[in-house]
Design a protein around this nucleic acid. Structure first.
Lengths: 147, 147
DNA sequence: CAGGGAGTGATACACTGTAACAAAGCCGCC
DNA sequence: GGCGGCTTTGTTACAGTGTATCACTCCCTG
């Protein structure tokens, strides 16, 4: 469970896992398809309690710093990190253009291939994003059934 | 020269390479670091002639359709396509966090590695973006000289 | 209790991108 | 040449995304 992981991480580092941060993380984990910051703000707001987008952004920055949440650059959306991998590790995002779902995977092949390419180019990487848009297996099967 | 390529491409396809589209392409090619849409609009505007951002976006969409310009998702910036490659072909963008320059390269290794990974995940790709942030050779050398 | 740092609230604003409709230019055709 | 239809551009307005700034609260420490 990602909440447990979050608690542990914060304890290790001596930083606070506040109520707001928890709620934002829960919202990211519970929303389908992956929400934008404003979606999260709306979800957490109720009559009598308004959560401003700026607060959500701060919580998201915090959670991204810890590697608990990723930002999808091509969608301006946020996804919970599906793995317990280290920060900065390379992941591949699979974005289904039909259902809007975003899956996360890793790829040693890509990692090593990219390493070679960067070396060849004389480029020292700090971090990278790899986002693939297409059709997930489930949606493809559905389409085949219908067509 | 990218302008020549643009003219040929447009002639082949029977679409218009208008003055505005040419100017936008020139602005993208001439701006360093890669400009945003609003930068381009400002650059093309003069007293007596205002180019609205929406016009720039339309021209950029056109140019991207032809594969003459790429969009850098992590920067909201646009770069001229450095290669004469086909549309949809995978490229790697190398974004220098020091000078802001963006280089473009291709990587057969990444391509084949990614193919395997997607197959394993049961995902059918339509297109993908791969952007690496780090330090380019030139900036690294400069830093070494200074440090 | 005083002082300080982290976190949050609130407002305002900058930046990015799109919708909708009007005006202008281009092209084929009669 | 003039008409009709299409593409392109202009214009305005607006939706969506993200940041700066300052005030306030809370909690911890001394």
């Amino acid at each position: 469970m990602i909440l447990t992981r979050a608690e542990e991480l914060c304890r290790e580092r001596g930083v606070q896992f506040t109520a707001l941060r928890r709620e934002v993380l829960e919202a990211v984990a519970a929303s389908e398809p992956p929400p934008g910051a404003y979606d999260i703000a709306e979800r957490l707001s109720r009559p009598g309690r308004r959560v401003a987008p700026v607060s959500v952004y701060r919580a998201l920055d915090f959670l991204m710093e810890l590697g608990l949440v990723h930002r999808i650059a091509s969608r301006n959306a946020f996804v919970p990190c599906a793995h317990a991998h280290g920060i900065g590790e390379n992941v591949v995002f699979l974005i289904c253009r039909t259902c809007g779902g975003i899956d996360e995977t890793t790829s040693p092949e890509v990692e090593s291939g990219l390493g070679k390419t960067l070396k060849r180019a004389g480029f020292t990487p700090a971090h990278s994003i790899l986002e693939v848009e297409g059709d997930c297996g489930a949606c493809r099967d559905k389409a085949r059934g219908a067509g």
